[in-house]
Design a protein around this nucleic acid. Structure first.
Lengths: 145, 145
DNA sequence: GTCGCATTTATAATTGATCTAAATTGAGAC
DNA sequence: GTCTCAATTTAGATCAATTATAAATGCGAC
């Protein structure tokens, strides 16, 4: 089960469905993310959108990503202490995080099952479960210490 | 299965076992973390260690936390985009992350079982699996939009 | 046109974390 | 004890991601 890739024509409806007012900048940003799919830092989005000529300011990129995340259009992924990633894939899924390169890749949640979790603390509701499988380059060299 | 809490006397041996040279500052920091147990930001540790009078500089706190993490004495937990947490619990376990308050709490990994993960990408080895259960305060008020 | 509101923008400010270069300390040789 | 070298600590400067601020801009209602 792969992340859905949208066509440019579907983007306006996508925003509307999430209660987001469509503006030029928001469409640009959504288009950049959803027609590629994948994981983006704010910086990535900024570069992607402004590739040819400046369209969208950095502040707007941050604002918009925040707005999208609030409204469930995209999802924050926090694996890198230095920056936040945003995930255009809203289907339930998990992540490989390549520690060596700082790269994320998806794990479909379709077959993943997590059992034995304790009950939630009192008065809490579950917001989601993130599973992050940290991986690194295979070292022939063992820890020689 | 709770995180092990150490007594002050056990700390020097703990460092030695992890190949860490014991110095005054490192002992102070380890003591602060391991006699309490729990999750700490660098800031937390700094405050905890220097509560009464300045003992350890901020730079040293960062250096030492990094050193401890490298040597497996503590573990980085990345759930908050604004700061890194360090976990004095090195037993296998997972986390509840309270989105409303930014608080972490432990889930023993003892009973948790994760099945259906795909094979690792080529040439990669697993470094660990983090499970983060995001929870939030129960809202009687549903999303009214 | 212009009033009002949402949005965007440039820029400054904030903040956790890291770097630098110098000072201090520690452990062993003598 | 003291010399020496390497390890450690330190204050302060610096960095990069993000957020805040306050001024423009766009756009529909009238």
């Amino acid at each position: 089960m792969k992340a859905k890739i949208y066509t440019a024509e579907e983007i306006p409806g996508l925003l509307r469905d999430h209660g987001i007012n469509a503006t030029f900048q928001r469409l640009e940003i959504a288009r950049a993310m959803f027609t590629h799919g994948g994981h983006f830092s704010a910086e990535d989005v900024f570069t992607l959108v402004n590739g040819d000529q400046p369209h969208v300011s950095k502040a707007t990129v941050y604002n918009t990503l925040g707005l999208f995340a609030e409204n469930g259009l995209i999802h924050q992924v926090i694996v890198d202490p230095t920056k936040v990633f945003y995930d255009a894939n809203t289907l339930p899924h998990h992540h490989f995080y390549n520690v060596s390169t700082g790269t994320l890749s998806d794990i479909s949640a379709h077959d993943v099952r997590i059992t034995g979790l304790p009950p939630l603390p009192e008065g809490m509701q579950m917001d989601g479960v993130d599973v992050i499988v940290r991986v690194r380059h295979n070292k022939k060299e063992a820890a020689a210490s």
